[in-house]
Design a protein around this nucleic acid. Structure first.
Lengths: 220, 220
DNA sequence: AGCCGGCTGTCAGCGTACTGTCAGGTTCGT
DNA sequence: ACGAACCTGACAGTACGCTGACAGCCGGCT
């Protein structure tokens, strides 16, 4: 699941990005309206989180252009607290949902899930990959039916890999999603984490592509 | 349980708010139609008490917009004039119940309880999870048939967890539902509460997902 | 009013599990 | 064979959650 995050406030953007990635979404962040418009117009996203107060081009204008150009991906708009006028305008422009700032991260996640579910149709909350099963509701992992106790970081890492099963994920991508872009480049934290997860799950469930990254193979 | 109270008459609002909170609901009050719509559209409530004679936007319009936007929380409508027409319109707009002013507070509370029970459980007012049984009608809890005496907060916490059995609930989500959104972020009240409930019920019935939250496992 | 008991949130202390770092070893590709 | 990439065990600091004690509050009872 790819999500486009258009938000110029670094603090908020970082928080949202972290939450999204640890929920297993692949996040692409942009911080200007023009960039948002361009990316959203030329790439496919499963959803967009769009702040209205963007530099260079107003969020509403971006949205209008997308819709005018037949881009129908679900868009969740962030608005300033209490600005109902913006909401109404946004609704007319074709937004699918709204969230006033400040918001609770959980609510954003819930609404985004709802949007994606509505548009894509029933993404199961349980990821299955061969013997490996990850229940996102219970945050529980089993291998061949045997429950595995994972720590928070371990769970996030595995969740991300499983949400992108069959794709090679680089160490930097993992680090970005686990720690944010301020991750230290010189650290083997990811390697250690991979090791710990492997020890608990079984060594073969996560493969290494030396020089590129890791992946959990599809229907292993 | 969070309840949105939309009522512009300060006297009535204060009375209802008092009654609701002393019955253990977390009450959020608004006094204009626009605000009601906004809050109800962007936040999660377990129920709404909605006056029809609101400034800025008519209660019926608010309700219509909610339902049009797929907000399904139970709504109890209040109106000054017990007119038939308004009642019919209200039901058409998706109200779940209707109460003419003046009303007796007990009746409001009873109807609200009924609404919440209906929307949450539908089938039965008794939540069962293995040995653990919670009777929302009598507000009684038993474990393996043995009655457990819980305080109000303890009961609310357990009730919320059981209504969402099988899902991990974060501390902030619990705090929001127990205290409303003005909850202090830095407090271990929830942890203490969890501890007290566990001591009474048995330690294994509520699991901890360190770093994420708590859950009562399904059909444990 | 005054006393009492239960409820509830705060606080401090404690133990455990988590997590990043490091050093040294191993594997892989070329 | 050599270096880079990766793995792994050990370790220390710390974050997280649990618990007992306590004080304020409220309602009930005398």
């Amino acid at each position: 699941m790819r999500v486009l995050l258009a938000e110029d406030d670094d603090r908020i953007a970082a928080d949202v990005a972290t939450a999204l990635s640890s929920a297993g979404y692949a996040v692409e962040r942009v911080s200007s309206g023009k960039e948002a418009w361009f990316r959203g117009d030329t790439e496919d996203f499963d959803a967009v989180v769009l702040d209205l107060g963007l530099p260079e081009m107003d969020g509403l204008a971006v949205l209008n252009r997308w819709r005018g150009n037949d881009r129908r991906m679900p868009v969740l708009v962030l608005t300033a607290r209490g600005s109902w006028i913006e909401r109404v305008e946004g609704m007319d422009a074709g937004a699918d949902d709204y969230l006033p700032k400040p918001f609770r991260m959980e609510e954003l996640m819930a609404r985004l899930r709802a949007l994606i579910r509505r548009s894509a149709g029933m993404a199961s909350p349980v990821l299955v990959n061969g013997e490996l099963v990850l229940d996102t509701r219970q945050m529980k992992v089993t291998v061949a039916g045997v429950p595995i106790g994972l720590s928070a970081q371990e769970y996030r890492l595995l969740s991300y890999l499983m949400h992108h099963a069959g794709r090679v994920i680089s160490q930097t991508e993992l680090a970005d999603h686990l720690y944010g872009q301020d991750a230290e480049r010189d650290s083997n934290a990811i390697e250690v984490l991979i090791g710990r997860v492997r020890r608990k799950l079984g060594v073969d469930l996560i493969e290494t592509r030396r020089g590129f990254g890791y992946l959990v193979p599809e229907s292993s």
